[in-house]
Structure formats: structure tokens, C-alpha cells
């Protein structure tokens, strides 16, 4: 959690995750090749390289589709949260598979050209005014460059040095990469592959990602309450409405969201934005006395918004008070790491 460079620590869970992921990649590539061989009709023939081009291409598309489903799915069911923790491993692997696909395509179809294979890839088809003959390779190449940028900056070293805001902005370009990838497949493989499985795969993948992302953008990420201050304080609601170790998220008008946590009979209010990657702290819970981010497990003490030693992250805290069983929050954020005395819930309310 510190901002200095730290080598990636391979926890047993991460090792198991990566082993399953690599096994899945191997099974897919083998299975795809076997299934394609069986489905090949008379008169068709594919070399092992062409088979691998198709296998890596479809796998990269499926993996990126799956990656973009993880975030919204983690909001729907906690079962997806372990995947959220290691989403970057999937992302880097997707880039490597896409790189193999691009390398094989370039060498197989342009390696014998008189000019540089990459130049040949880009200039051999100038039909930008056509849909069915569009040079779809250029779309795939741009998507690959975006995936490279994300894979290269995926380590927390870059997150700390670029800052969570810029890092997040860079990594949101994955949505652009996905649109380019769908266009790459739609204007490429779909134009000359006649097997309906390709169309079904592309259309269903794009539809699922779009539906989940729209759901996440417009319905799942809303605050529990949008409030305007009365006499300078925001009304949160009854203390009894907050489950123990959980939070209610408030959205003050024109300001960042506030997470109001209940920890036993104490009420704490902190910024809803995790210092790591901007995760929604209010969707997490208090574990071992610390507010724990649902995205990557960063922790903060509820009483002062500081990460436990030896970590150094700090988030803003807010003053709270309870009047007649109703919790109020002062919407003015205190400096990150400022200790605040918690409000106490009376026995009758609990």
C-alpha cells in the first residue's frame, strides 16, 4: 500500500488464481484447435498457424469481454470479488495472447512482403471507404497498443507515481479498446468466416458487456441518499438503518461521496473514495476494526481515516452527530487522516 516500489507479492491465492488462469488458456487453445479440426468441412484446410491465429484471436476477445463483466458483476454478487482483486492478471494475460495473435497474423500474412511486415499490414489495404473490405487490422493494432499501455502501467508503482486519478483515466481507455476490438472482429473475421458461432460469440459478448456496463453506470453505482444540507449538516437517516460494520453512502450536492459506517455502537464518516484506485469504500465493510475497500482490500481506521502501520495512505474524515436517533454529517471534509470522535448510538436505538 506504500507509494514506493514494491515487488509483486505472490500470495497462495494469487498463485492458485494464475495457475487456474493459465490452465484455462491451455485448455481453450487445445479445445479450439480440436473443435475446429472436427468442424472443418471438405475442401477447407487450415495450417496449424492459421488455427492458432483463430484460437488466440477468439480467446483474447472472450477474455476482454469477461474482464469487462467482472466490475459490474462484483456489484451484483460478492462471488466475483476475488476476480476483481486479480483482474490485472487477466488483463496482462489478455494483452500477451492478443500480442501472439497480432504477431502470427503479421508474420503469416505479411512476413514475405518486400516491405516491413508492419508497414505492409497497414498499407496493403487502403479501402477505408468500404465496410466489408475495411482494413480492420488497423483497428486491432490500435486496440493492442491500448492494451499494451494498460499492461505496462498495471503495477501499483505506476498507480502511485501517476496518481490514482490519472492512472484510472488511463485505464478507462479499456472501453475504447473494447469498441475497437468489436469493430476489428465485426469488419474482419465476421466478413469472411461463415460459421454462425463467430457471429453469436461477437454479438452476445458485446451485448452482455454493454448491458452490464450501462447497468453499472446508471443504476448500480448510485448513492443510498442524495442530500442537501439543512443547518449545515446532512441528514443520513436512522442509526438503526445501517447494518453493523457496513455503511450508507451519501452524495452531497456537487461534492465527493461520503461513507457513513456503523461499527458496533459507533458511527464514523469518511470519504467514499479509496486512495488506491478510487474504489467505493462505502460498499466495503469493517474487517478487523478497519474499513476495507471492496476492490483490492486497502484498509483505513474508521476513527482517523489512516491506513494501519506500516502503510501511509490517508482519506478525509467528517464530523458526525446523532440527534433523536438520526445521524447527521458535516459535509465539510477534514484534512485526510484527521481523528474524529465517533458519535455513539444509544442502546434504545440499537
Amino acid at each position: 500500500m506504500a507509494h514506493g516500489y514494491k515487488a509483486v507479492t505472490w500470495t497462495p491465492f494469487k498463485k492458485r488464481f494464475d495457475a487456474w488462469m493459465l490452465a484455462g488458456v491451455a485448455v481453450y487453445l487445445t479445445g479450439f484447435s480440436a473443435a475446429s479440426s472436427l468442424a472443418t468441412t471438405d475442401g477447407e484446410s487450415f495450417t496449424p498457424v492459421q488455427m492458432l491465429i483463430r484460437a488466440t484471436g477468439t480467446l483474447a476477445f472472450l477474455m476482454l469481454t469477461f474482464i469487462l463483466c467482472i466490475g459490474p458483476m462484483a456489484r451484483l454478487t460478492p462471488r466475483f470479488k476475488p476476480l476483481l482483486y486479480n483482474r490485472r492478471h487477466l488483463g496482462v494475460t489478455t494483452f500477451l495472447i492478443a500480442l501472439v495473435h497480432a504477431g502470427l497474423v503479421t508474420l503469416w500474412y505479411h512476413g514475405f512482403s518486400d516491405i516491413n511486415p508492419i508497414v505492409s499490414l497497414l498499407v496493403s489495404n487502403p479501402r477505408y471507404d468500404s465496410i466489408s473490405g475495411f482494413p480492420f487490422e488497423s483497428l486491432g493494432l490500435i486496440a493492442l497498443l491500448i492494451l499494451f499501455l494498460m499492461a505496462a502501467t498495471s503495477h501499483d508503482f505506476w498507480n502511485a507515481n501517476l496518481g490514482p486519478g490519472l492512472w484510472k483515466a488511463v485505464h478507462m481507455s479499456v472501453y475504447g479498446a473494447y469498441v475497437l476490438l468489436v469493430a476489428h472482429v465485426a469488419l474482419g473475421a465476421i466478413q469472411f468466416e461463415k460459421h454462425p458461432a463467430y457471429v453469436v460469440l461477437l454479438a452476445s459478448g458485446a451485448a452482455i458487456v454493454t448491458a452490464l456496463q450501462l447497468y453499472s453506470a446508471f443504476f448500480a453505482s448510485g448513492p443510498d441518499a442524495k442530500t442537501r444540507p439543512t443547518d449545515g449538516w446532512l441528514e443520513v437517516g436512522s442509526a438503526a438503518d445501517i447494518p453493523d460494520s457496513r455503511a450508507i453512502i451519501l452524495e452531497p450536492e456537487g461534492a465527493e461521496r461520503i461513507a457513513v459506517f456503523r461499527n458496533g455502537n459507533k458511527v464514523h464518516a469518511v470519504s467514499n473514495v479509496c486512495r488506491h484506485q478510487g474504489g467505493p469504500l462505502g460498499e466495503g465493510r469493517i474487517i478487523d476494526g478497519c474499513i476495507t475497500c471492496p476492490w483490492h482490500g486497502f484498509q483505513y481506521r474508521p476513527e482517523d481515516g489512516r491506513s494501519p502501520e506500516p502503510f501511509t495512505e490517508r482519506i478525509s474524515t467528517y464530523e458526525t452527530q446523532i440527534r433523536d436517533g438520526i445521524i447527521y454529517v458535516n459535509p465539510r471534509p477534514l484534512a485526510p487522516g484527521t481523528p474524529v470522535t465517533p458519535s455513539l448510538i444509544e442502546e434504545a436505538v440499537r
Partner: peptide, 15 residues
Amino acid sequence: AAPLLVCVLIAALAC
């Protein structure tokens, strides 16, 4: 992105 994806898919399948 949502309408763009729909347009790309429709155009690609239509052509």
C-alpha cells in the same frame, strides 16, 4: 459506446 457498438454490428452484418 453502446450505440456505437450496435451500429458497428448492424453495419458489419448488413454488409
